[in-house]
Nucleic acid binder design. Structure first.
Lengths: 210, 210
DNA sequence: GGGTTTCTATACCAATCGGTATTGAAATAG
DNA sequence: CTATTTCAATACCGATTGGTATAGAAACCC
């Protein structure tokens, strides 16, 4: 018994022995992502998922293993496609520009007109029953991983004299990620894009240094 | 058929005709609050609730109506007891002091050692299925109400020349509430009190004006 | 005391939860 | 073609969800 085959990595590497799958796992995963993104892990029922994915329950389990594995795959996809701006932001030359790219990237991702509002990494990690605890911890860990990347980037900035002397790199990074998580809550609550835009501007206006 | 009797308002005003209730509704409500606070509305099952409250299911329904009504009562209690710092903060003489009191109050409430981490108003409004939508909207509305109070307070500050010219009252209020919601996410994820403390200091260091 | 009222406790309800066993068809390899 | 393999569809599983009907015991008023 093997779990979820990986569809993209070994592109057409399988010898394709039996009857081929009739649906596109990538498209199905993208549909599942939207459901998880808008309802959270526990809020998304298997009925919600299979309807959106256009497949039956057994097909889902054959292709992805179980609900939790599907969620992790969706989380992977989310980070790969929707959180790419984070990695790009960290390449910006100055700490201020890093912050600016992160804030604007978050704005675009969390407030798109054609996608769920908010952030899967926030909505997926709050308000859950006991059985979803492992999922919650996973999401928290992934958030912490990104936060750590920002911390390290700001420590570099500190060494490069890119941050004002009064503020610590880790403190500033924690502050920024906290603000971004606040963005996610506001976006999930339906704040308008214009308001979120002004929020970005305000945050940048308060950012230390030039 | 009448719903949830109000236990405190008409203190001993009821003629007490039949057999009196054997449990204290206030204590039971406080217990329910802790459950909702730590697991959210949907994450809290009736079994969780009745076990924590020390009463049976029928007693819960006789005393509070249903799960949603119980949640609203818990939300009332939460705002009355745990969010009192918000009203007090708004009485501070300057905008900066308002912000400081809000940040420190949030820190104390969200990071207590003997209570759930995070904020019921945040955890209760994300990641829910369809049936909890009305509850979610209610929580969002209550959050908006508090945000509106901060906006009005900052508009007054603006009139009193208490805010720097570069920043708008509404924008600053939105920024502050967003930051506080980020606090809630971080606290819910288990950030340490020391870290949250430094977060408050960093936020205050970035606050505009003296 | 009787009579009434409202309590608590147990057992139960339909609906939904995540997850599977079964089945028969369809597409491959040879 | 046959044999094999894997598909998708239906129906089902036990457990749990929020919510109640029933029944017996306990506390009130008179």
């Amino acid at each position: 018994m093997e779990l979820a085959d990986s569809p993209t990595p070994p592109a057409t590497a399988a010898p394709a022995k039996g009857r081929p799958r009739e649906f596109c796992t990538d498209a199905a995963l993208a549909a599942a992502l939207r459901i998880f993104w808008s309802k959270g892990y526990e809020g998304a029922s298997l009925t919600d998922l299979t309807e959106a994915m256009g497949i039956t329950r057994p097909s889902l389990y054959a292709a992805f293993g179980n609900k939790e594995a599907l969620f992790r795959r969706a989380l992977d996809l989310y980070e790969r496609e929707k959180l790419a701006y984070i990695r790009e932001a960290l390449d910006a030359p100055t700490a201020r520009q890093v912050a600016e790219r992160l804030l604007r990237g978050a704005l675009a991702t969390m407030c798109s007109d054609c996608e769920p509002k908010g952030c899967l990494r926030v909505i997926g990690a709050v308000a859950c029953g006991d059985e979803a605890e492992s999922v919650r911890q996973e999401v928290i860990a992934r958030r912490a991983s990104s936060q750590q990347a920002v911390i390290e980037r700001f420590e570099r900035a500190k060494r490069e004299g890119d941050l004002p002397p009064g503020v610590g790199a880790e403190d500033l990074a924690t502050y920024l990620t906290t603000l971004l998580q606040g963005f996610a809550v506001q976006a999930g609550a339906g704040i308008s894009r214009a308001q979120l835009d002004r929020l970005v501007e305000t945050s940048l206006a308060l950012w230390p240094g030039r």
